[in-house]
């Protein structure tokens, strides 16, 4: 049972890393939103599985929040915003998809290299979960910096948050209040970002953030 529980937990965590990679190579906004919903779904399943094997019922609440808010509310909200704004539906990357994917593989290797020795004393569950979670965080950051589009930066930011949840639930005994406050801060972030998207769109007719730089007098 233990062995199986571990393997399933790793399956979900690894699946999350895989979905992060899928996020990296999306070149359409709606595709990106769908993959993000999948990302949140995998997180929520993973958290639910953790709740089951750790016998920690409060993690079910976390899983539910992740499922409802991030797998449904946020993608739908972003979808509606994009439709209403009539945003250009394609994402132009800063660096090519290929290089981004290679960098992503490097980041995963790095986080495994860092995490495995550090968490050597911890249980196997925590150890590999932490490595996967760090990979997800780094991939999210990579996504934020390798895209011009504001929407993909928002998605990158949220996938970082998913990575953090993965790390937190892997470690036993994370208080529920922390998780709920994180979830709410993500919601607030969504609202703020949504407002900003509207404002940017109103002023520049695009959500390509490089337009902002030109406005600030920066180098294009």
């Amino acid at each position: 049972m233990d062995r199986l529980a571990l393997d399933v937990a790793h399956l979900f965590a690894g699946g999350l890393v895989l979905v992060s990679f899928m996020l990296l190579y999306q070149d359409r906004i709606f595709g990106l939103l769908n993959i993000f919903a999948l990302h949140a779904l995998v997180v929520s399943v993973s958290v639910a599985w953790q709740a089951y094997i750790q016998q920690a019922p409060h993690l079910y609440i976390t899983a539910t929040i992740a499922l409802v808010v991030k797998a449904f509310v946020i993608p739908v909200a972003l979808h509606r915003i994009i439709v209403r704004l009539g945003i250009h539906r394609e994402i132009d990357p800063v660096v090519g998809i290929g290089q981004t994917m290679l960098a992503g593989i490097g980041l995963v290797a790095l986080s495994i290299m860092v995490m495995l020795p550090i968490a050597a004393e911890a249980g196997t569950l925590v150890r590999e979960d932490l490595a996967f979670a760090l990979s997800v965080v780094l991939l999210g950051l990579l996504m934020m910096i390798s895209r011009h589009n504001a929407v993909s930066q928002v998605i990158g930011f949220m996938s970082i948050e998913n990575g953090l949840i993965l790390a937190a639930t892997g470690a036993k005994g994370m208080p529920l209040v922390v998780e709920i406050s994180v979830a709410f801060s993500i919601l607030v972030a969504l609202i703020v970002i949504g407002v900003f998207l509207f404002r940017i769109r109103e002023r520049f007719d695009t959500v390509d953030v490089s337009t902002l730089d030109q406005y600030r007098g920066g180098r294009p």
Partner: peptide, 12 residues
């Protein structure tokens, strides 16, 4: 006076 993305890149 860098862009937001450049700052993020620095942090990254």
């Amino acid at each position: 006076s860098l862009t937001v993305r450049a700052y993020l890149t620095l942090v990254f």
